[in-house]
Nucleic acid binder design. Sequence first.
DNA 1: AGCCTGCTCTAAATCGATTTAGAAAGAGTA
DNA 2: TACTCTTTCTAAATCGATTTAGAGCAGGCT
Lengths: 351, 351
Amino acid sequence: MDDDISAPAAQPGETAVPALRRRATLKTVAHAAGVSPALASFALNGKPGVSPEKREEILRAARELGYQPDTLARELRTGKTAVHGLIVRNIANPYFNDVLAGMQEAAFEHDITVLAMDSEYSEDRERRHIRHLAARRVNSLAIAPVGSAHVVQEWLTLRPGARTVLINSSTHLGPGIPRVSPDGGRAVTMAFEHLRALGHQRIGFLTAPEALRSDEDRLTRFVELCREARAEPVVISAELQGAAITTAIVSALRSRPAPTAIITNSDFAAHYVYMAAHELELRIGDDLSIVGHDDLPTSQLLNPSLTTIAVDRRRLGREAFRRLFGAADGDYHGGVSLVARDSTRPPRPQP
Amino acid sequence: MDDDISAPAAQPGETAVPALRRRATLKTVAHAAGVSPALASFALNGKPGVSPEKREEILRAARELGYQPDTLARELRTGKTAVHGLIVRNIANPYFNDVLAGMQEAAFEHDITVLAMDSEYSEDRERRHIRHLAARRVNSLAIAPVGSAHVVQEWLTLRPGARTVLINSSTHLGPGIPRVSPDGGRAVTMAFEHLRALGHQRIGFLTAPEALRSDEDRLTRFVELCREARAEPVVISAELQGAAITTAIVSALRSRPAPTAIITNSDFAAHYVYMAAHELELRIGDDLSIVGHDDLPTSQLLNPSLTTIAVDRRRLGREAFRRLFGAADGDYHGGVSLVARDSTRPPRPQP
DNA sequence: AGCCTGCTCTAAATCGATTTAGAAAGAGTA
DNA sequence: TACTCTTTCTAAATCGATTTAGAGCAGGCT
């Protein structure tokens, strides 16, 4: 099996190719500059103890040979990786997309690679991703864990001392593990008060089933708000994927008395509520009010436009990065604001 | 040099900490099984030439110690990486999101990690990503290149022999570099014929400016179709990001005679046309017809719902993977189909 | 002279795996 | 007995970097 990529090894039938030299290594550079690899390493890493002439010479050689250090070898030796992991629950959700983009943006400035992975709401996949990262000696991980973050515990065992950040999770794992998320309590409160001000009495809250739930805090706050307002909390639990979610919403909307408004934890999930409403021929706004969360770009284009809680998602990504990088610590709770649009209106007078 | 690894070696000043053992290495395993590291390697990799007893012994030791091979070391030694790179033009576009998801899904089955990166329509970032990947010895890359894929040439030089796949690019780089994309010619034709059947005469086509354009083939086909239909092609070029795109669309819609319909290359871009139309107080459907491309989940929820070309994006991701993995070769042109909705209607009779 | 200090520089070890070359032991054959 | 094969195993080299320990030398000081 010939897979030595760097070897010139002109294939018999091949046309004359410009001799593709082997990739330059530190040894090559050192040799070209007439010094030892050790000195070359010092010079290239800006370490002291190298005479100006030699330093000059070495840098020149490196430039001429197009030397690029081998990341693998460096990481193996130093034990430090220039890679940050990011595991999200659903990469198809534009929310996480923007978080990734923000993180990538910040990482780029520091020449760090972000390894993005999708657990698709499965702890199993989460576990495999974590093992993968550990085997790669990644020692910084931002994760939006499924449920109550069991798998993160495994990660902490696998790579003790690794920097870890929880994204959009209500699980608290200790002071060393900061959490980055929008201010969930505020978000629920704003949504709730907005709906109450419009006159809604019976309000639903859409969330994941308990095992997969990662927004316990919001749910708690919601129930609390309902109690204060002497309203009955309608909790709709559904796997936030595929057909399950539509079915659950449809059945909640069919129950009597039906909620006149629903609060969701993402615009993405709100889309499903739209679909369910279409299915039942309910008019959104008039028959059923909906509040989303995230303010995705498409939300204002929906029919009707979606009332939602705006969040700076890229900022979340950047903040996650800063904590992994060691440029910040402690929790970060991003500010939120309500964007009132046409999906929320006063409820129709009940007969 | 103390290399008796199994010894807990309680440091003198250390408090009684639950002995955090070093991660098991091959050497540890070999030592525990009473064999050389070489034999342990053979056994663990299922190579022949190991007696059944020793093999059993080694596997048991590995299991008990929770041995996980170090990916970095393995990759350094063998020169083969279990990583596939993916560079997209805009990871915020749900389109690429799904491509990534599809690729990740397929990769997962083969225990391969996908390194996803976002070039944000910048060749500069593209170049940096490519160098990063090369430094990591990644030898499989799927890329949705910016413009005419100049940077991919550098990649091919940096890692000659690497498997490379172009995603959604009209550039042809040779037989060894397969392309994976929806059938662009068919897509444009379907959109065009749909609009013509409705009675549209003056049709616009939204595309990136020449330097960033990666859908030359579709544009060509569009111009061809116009010529055949004796209609004037209205080409709207704009950077497909931020404010630039809205401005360009607004000015195109203000020109006289204005196009009565616009074909876009993505639903994502169609969103911007919606915004521009709102700005000009044009009613989509009645005053301006729009055909998107991709059929994102939100497209049917827009106001009005978006007529678009449906594409199986996850499939594209899987096909890209298969080519990187060596399970398939040659170009793949995904099937497309028109989904007629409310954003396309007959043009209003011109006064 | 003798000794210490500081500056450059190099040899060699190291990270953790794979792989090559060959050693050791036993079986079969002439 | 001597020789050739097999089979099973190990020592050592290797991938490409970083890092430690220390060599060599010039200059300053007693």
